[in-house]
């Protein structure tokens, strides 16, 4: 079964509540007094009418301004958010790497978190045990792995998260800005690892604001604007379109 990601006219609404979780007390008081202000909410579309199809070997760079829907799109493909409109189909083992600390328990040691993270990705303790030496070696964290993850720097966090994610041999790898905290050495090493993974026909989706990195890792770029696909195609052409837009914005403000 080859990995695929297909989205057809997918839209996702976020409802902005005045108060996300009102207290039961306030709700009862409001019901009694006839005030309705706590219920007030407004909808906005974080993703609107997204249609895309990804095939094995595609490494997609996802670019756009803050709030354009890049992370939301990754989270929707992961299954964290269910779209309110449209259809989607995902085939293949997904490993998401979202921001910092993809599903770590901060109180537990790095080593224990390898097993927790692995279990969340569907691996048994025995399967993870076999992967531990490789993860330890690639992360270069050494004895720091025995420390609770809450004492990790963001760079260490990212090293561990990426080492686990890449050891799980995913068909679909989703990366959200995780290289922001990495030192040059680790970013270089990770990029090589990603190259290897893509050779094995993995789909990669990478969110980044670093256009150098996008150029280096992607063979297709999607530019999101206000939840819609503004451009999709050749990396250079799409990056140019995005950079023109940035220049326009800078002139305006």
């Amino acid at each position: 079964m080859s990995a695929t990601v297909e989205l057809h006219a997918v839209s996702l609404r976020f409802r902005i509540y005045r108060n996300v979780s009102p207290s039961l007390k306030d709700t009862v008081v409001n019901l009694l007094t006839g005030k309705r202000e706590l219920d007030q909410s407004s909808d906005f579309y974080a993703l609107r009418d997204i249609t895309l199809e990804l095939k094995p070997g595609e490494r997609v760079g996802l670019i756009g301004l803050n709030g354009a829907g890049k992370s939301t799109l990754l989270k929707t493909i992961t299954g964290i958010y269910q779209p309110h409109e449209g259809r989607m189909m995902v085939r293949g083992k997904i490993t998401p790497l979202m921001e910092l600390g993809a599903g770590f328990d901060p109180e537990q040691s790095g080593r224990r978190n390898i097993f927790l993270n692995g279990a969340l990705l569907g691996f048994s303790p025995a399967q993870m045990k076999a992967k531990v030496p490789g993860i330890v070696e690639f992360s270069e964290l050494g004895e720091h792995l025995d420390l609770p993850v809450k004492y990790f720097s963001s760079g260490m966090h990212q090293r561990l998260a990426f080492s686990i994610a890449s050891a799980t041999d995913p068909d679909i790898l989703l990366i959200d800005e995780v290289f922001a905290a990495g030192d040059g050495h680790f970013v270089e090493k990770s990029s090589r690892r990603i190259d290897e993974m893509v050779q094995r026909s993995t789909i990669l989706i990478l969110v980044s604001h670093d256009m150098q990195q996008i150029r280096r890792l992607s063979n297709r770029v999607i530019y999101l604007e206000q939840g819609r696909i503004a451009a999709d195609g050749e990396p250079e052409a799409v990056i140019t379109a995005y950079e023109n837009r940035l220049r326009e914005l800078n002139r305006a403000h």
Partner: peptide
């Protein structure tokens, strides 16, 4: 909307169902 097979290998989602 329905999930097919094992969640970690594949899933489908249709908002109209």
């Amino acid at each position: 909307m329905a999930l097919t097979e094992q969640r970690q290998l594949a899933f489908e989602f249709d908002a109209s169902r």
